[in-house]
Design a protein around this nucleic acid. Sequence first.
DNA 1: ACGCCCGACTAAAGCGCTTTAGCCGGATCA
DNA 2: TGATCCGGCTAAAGCGCTTTAGTCGGGCGT
Lengths: 348, 348
Amino acid sequence: MTSVERPGRRPTIADIAAQAGVSPTAVSFALNDRPGISEQTRTRILAAVAELGWRPNVAARALGGRRADTVGLVVARPARTLGVEPFFAQLVSGLQARLSADRVALQLLVVEDVSAELDVYRRWAAERRTDGVVVLDLKQDDPRPEELARAGLPAVLVGGDGTPGPVPAVFADDHAAMIVLAEHLAALGHVHVGHVGGIPASIHSARRVAALHDTGARLGLTITTVPTDFSQDEAAAATRALLAHDERPTAIVYDSDVAALAGVTVLAEAGLSVPGDISVASFDDSALVRLAHPPLTAMTTDTFELGELVGQTVLSLVRGQAVPDVVGAPPPRLTVRGSTGRVPEVVA
Amino acid sequence: MTSVERPGRRPTIADIAAQAGVSPTAVSFALNDRPGISEQTRTRILAAVAELGWRPNVAARALGGRRADTVGLVVARPARTLGVEPFFAQLVSGLQARLSADRVALQLLVVEDVSAELDVYRRWAAERRTDGVVVLDLKQDDPRPEELARAGLPAVLVGGDGTPGPVPAVFADDHAAMIVLAEHLAALGHVHVGHVGGIPASIHSARRVAALHDTGARLGLTITTVPTDFSQDEAAAATRALLAHDERPTAIVYDSDVAALAGVTVLAEAGLSVPGDISVASFDDSALVRLAHPPLTAMTTDTFELGELVGQTVLSLVRGQAVPDVVGAPPPRLTVRGSTGRVPEVVA
DNA sequence: ACGCCCGACTAAAGCGCTTTAGCCGGATCA
DNA sequence: TGATCCGGCTAAAGCGCTTTAGTCGGGCGT
């Protein structure tokens, strides 16, 4: 059995002050690079800090100083479903990397639904646990931005529709990206294109559907979208539905990497070869789609980099610096791999 | 542009005390369920709390009370590689779920290597940022348990070798699990079994290798282990190496789900059918291996549940309750899917 | 030679909560 | 009846840091 006891108390600013022969105030000033301390004294103080191994007590700092040096991320998803798609982990890595460069911690919370998420925001704001938060998975008419603004909790949205709102957003233009993808398929001669989409209430899903259909209309494509809840099961079912469709598509676009993988499995079971019989493209790129056989054509986003950008934005925000209402992230690029090819001759 | 200003100040304990007509001390006692407050007064105080919407200021609480109500998780992996395997996200979900049930926050940090990780522990211990930490990816002769014990930072290891050390560990017996898997393959008639392993320095990889080889010796199997760094590329290369081996294995065991998926792709490219020509099993189960075609036989662990158990353990620990040196987690169970079958007749 | 200013530093208050001494009055006991 | 006890509550001292008022002494201007 093991139980724990903290060792002897840590040095405080008072200890350093004593060691350096100055007042605690002088130490605080020296540590925070404020004027009024001679170079000589400052050096002496820093030496004492190093010698005693002093570290700021974050709680004390937050109490006095008003900053918790912590940013929160609340994810409203069924907890057990988290973790299949690399997107989330990649984003968190990037976010975290940017934050920790500035010694700001990332606090993570997974909740069941948006209402629980709102509770958390209210609680965090009141408890002063975090200086700001990052919000994912924007929905149509999402109540969160407004609620956050009301609670006075600085926040940064990831995604959204690219229009200014009460809370700044980091926005990657997947509308434009979807157009690129549609043009790629059109160039290969595809006319009937299937689309395994996401939850219609999700803003980015809706935007993708709109982009695909608009572009389809422009280029003379027939688009069939089947919405799903992003689960593999529904993606598989959607794929079967598309195959059974009157005008069986010669290409299918999947909104996520996981969905695409599930779809490819269905195609394999149906005895269809990719891209010989049918082309497949994923809207999300990740290590997973490279695992498929053949590797999938996809729209590539550097999600890690997106996370860093989000981190940068939230840091600026909590420091009271002005932040654009919409921060543009690099748009996804088309990465052509082996899963898309010319439309099969047979059709015509 | 948006910039932020916090709204009017939050109520403090003093406000509640005034509202309820008692002293701040009485409020604190009532809030912390300490004796010496009459039921009537307590009710009045709680009413005031509700009315004013008071919330504890965590910083103040940590300053006085000595507890940060935060648990840390530091992961030493190249940040960009994080997120491919569901294991991590699942574990975090479970851990987080257990912690947040007790209003304890999870702080996440990704660092480049173990030495940076140690720095973080020292810093956190000094800053009192976290009450305890969770440690993953144990290596042989890992310096972390000892260092944590020295720093006086309560910690819980995930994995390890099942022997008591300076820090309590939550341990799932993958040794036993690997034996089950080997027996499954032996029962199907396989004799030459390939094994795509992990990093030899990793404790759990080493334990799996040992288990597999021991059982192989007992059952008369020939085991060929190829170590990898857990990456897909090396897993693919290892698979090719096994196929080129003098005694080509009739079954391959992969140490991770991602590796197995990469391997299956290689097999498909080589024109081998699974399980007709070769059987495949993954040591990690996850949504991914169910995506493969055919879905893979795997050792199933409820990683979410494991995370919850880790959370429970770390909570007990930071509360000063005694914790067993080794907490047993449910052992992985064999889930037979379509990817393992009888050894092909051709051989004989 | 006197008052001023300014740089360098200190004293002390305060952030919001917990906790350790008490204090006070009524019930209990001898 | 007086000493004791005890439940119910308050005063006040921290926790470690930041910040706002100074203080102090020497160089400067006149």
